[in-house]
Design a protein around this nucleic acid. Structure first.
Lengths: 341, 341
DNA sequence: CTCCATATTGTAATCGTTTTCATCCTATCT
DNA sequence: AGATAGGATGAAAACGATTACAATATGGAG
């Protein structure tokens, strides 16, 4: 409520002095400082950050877009992001996109209109609608993509992620090496390029192993528990059900395992399950879930470091930074049952 | 980059007209409108929201403080909040507090300094340090607490939540009615008043049933999987282990079940487990977790509605709004084993 | 064609800071 | 004591939008 003018008046100094006292106290004489401090205390003054931001031309905020809170995978990445941001005195704000379709332009505008100094797209399922003729094409706002990969047809956005395709290939190979031939795949959503990458990896591995890829063994799990359960039921009702199911993320794998057990079968004796992401719930499942681990915290750190470099005038680059993944072997996958059919 | 001045110059009109064209197009003649539109397109102009916010004196943002993304419980509450906010044209920003201790004053200042029009504290574990002599005591910023209850010694903050104490009592009663006498409790953290409420409910129910409350049957689970596993191990190693364990939230209950099974016992045949919150992972556990469900979405809606009323000048009130909870019975709790000792 | 009401546009003040530049003071050196 | 360097302060411009008010244009009625 109180403005700097009132503080200045009360302290008997000019507003410039008050401003200096706040932003660089060493510039003002101790004696004046105490007077100002007293006036601030008395008025309960707190700088109007709207005015500050306006004047300074920056907010000190970085907005991270996520699909929704409550996704355990985000935790590690956010930790990496927040730690660095805190050191560098930036404030992290998270915004949920939910099911809203947000175009690339809208993200860009967010920065152009100064609502944020930079933007991170974190595993956000968003149909990256190609930008309509961008006006000042030269000026790309500081924006970086984490975890998600970006469709080819769009600008070559800078990003940090694992090689989802290779990782999915490894997971599939693991199942193949265990002796599985009938391997199904539950993908997330056709909006999620990340999920599509994983599907590609699965298919490639199957093809290399010369194993059949039945169309009806690739089903959509909608990235949700309910969706994955339904998908699993569909697979179990198949005339020749698979002996292994590879799920595009852990959330779906957990639901998948649950559905298998509910149907009276056991994991991994009857059917093996492999997930992706290694969320914290994976290892406390029964059986503990075999999955692909992402270096979440490292991804977060690298992402924000590149973004900050861009914000502070450096070049963010156009390339995709690939970080290593790891297959974490637990107990949800084993050799296929001897007898079949 | 481009400012309203440049657009005005290019369109051959005054900045007032440009402003009007953007904010209330019906006030400007169609012909002028097209000129302005052309200029905007050409310059790629996007209003500087820093200037807008400054001038308008509000941001249109509401900040929700949470401890961390990745907590599945938050999902429902946030859905409720976001839906209403969207209708009312407010923007929801989430900020993680992590382990940082944030004082009440800091939240208050956030609004006073106009960074947000209002603040929601959502299940945020924060030591509500009492405000230091508040200056303009009269002016309480629009701030409301969701889910968490607030310690007595602090100002009577408005809040929306379930009756954690009663709910915990019901859960405990449920175990007692099943025939359990040796019931342990895993609490979250001594920082979390919400957890303390649940502990109180547990103790009260035990006392009413005249059952012993052994001190070493109340252990800290740290609100984490790892912490709860450790706590469970401690309970299992007890000279007379409990036949039932009530956990202050589902996350810990899931870890608790896992630890019990890892130790070669089974749930619920050997030990019953009950959780709290009914996060989405609860029902896909093996066995599905019996727990207390909160009407998360409703909590979110009520919270934001009250906050918006306060922002728009109404009175937010000082009272706690209590919404109904529900015991969800699944398969993680059963009668205690016949033989004991 | 003139006049008036109304629709449209322009001028300029304003929001609360930060910051440049000029001014004034103080202390040190000669 | 006088000169001067440098530290502390103040005056005022600037940031980019919104908006009250004034000015001008437009159109219809008489």
């Amino acid at each position: 409520m109180a403005s700097i003018t009132q503080v200045a008046k009360l302290a008997g100094v000019s507003i410039a002095t008050v401003s200096r006292y706040i932003n660089s106290p060493e510039q003002v004489k101790t004696k004046t400082g105490t007077k100002v401090a007293a006036a601030i205390a008395k008025t309960g003054y707190s700088p109007n950050s709207l005015a500050q931001n306006f004047r300074r031309g920056k907010t000190g905020n970085i907005v991270v877009f996520i699909t929704s809170v409550g996704d355990p995978f985000l935790e590690g990445v956010m930790r990496g992001i927040s730690q660095i941001a805190e050191e560098k005195k930036y404030n992290i704000l998270i915004q949920e996109t939910r099911s809203n379709t947000v175009s690339f332009d809208e993200y860009n505008k967010m920065v152009l209109s100064k609502q944020a100094d930079g933007v991170i797209l974190l595993a956000a399922i968003c149909p990256f609608t190609a930008p309509i003729a961008r006006p000042s094409e030269s000026k790309q706002a500081p924006l970086i993509v984490a975890c998600e990969s970006v469709s080819e047809d769009l600008a070559n956005l800078p990003s940090v992620r694992i090689d989802n395709e290779s990782a999915a290939g490894e997971a599939t190979d693991y199942l193949i090496n265990l002796g599985h031939k009938d391997i199904a795949f539950i993908y997330g959503s056709s909006n999620s390029t990340l999920t599509l990458d994983r599907e590609r990896g699965y298919k490639k591995a199957m093809k290399i192993a010369k194993l059949p890829i039945a169309d009806d063994w690739i089903v959509e799990g909608g990235l949700s528990l309910a969706g994955a359960r339904k998908a699993t039921r569909k697979l179990l009702n198949h005339s020749t059900p698979p002996t292994a199911i590879f799920c595009a993320n852990d959330e779906m794998a957990i639901a998948c395992m649950h559905q298998i057990k509910t149907s009276g079968l056991s994991v991994p004796q009857d059917i093996s399950v492999v997930g992706f992401d290694d969320i914290r719930y994976a290892e406390v499942q029964d059986p503990p879930l075999t999955t692909i681990a992402q270096p979440a915290e490292e991804i977060g750190e690298r992402t924000i470091l590149r973004l900050l470099k861009a914000i502070e005038g450096g070049d963010i680059g156009q390339n995709t930074e690939v970080v290593p993944h790891k297959l974490v072997i637990r107990q949800s996958a084993a050799r296929p049952p001897k007898k079949r059919k």
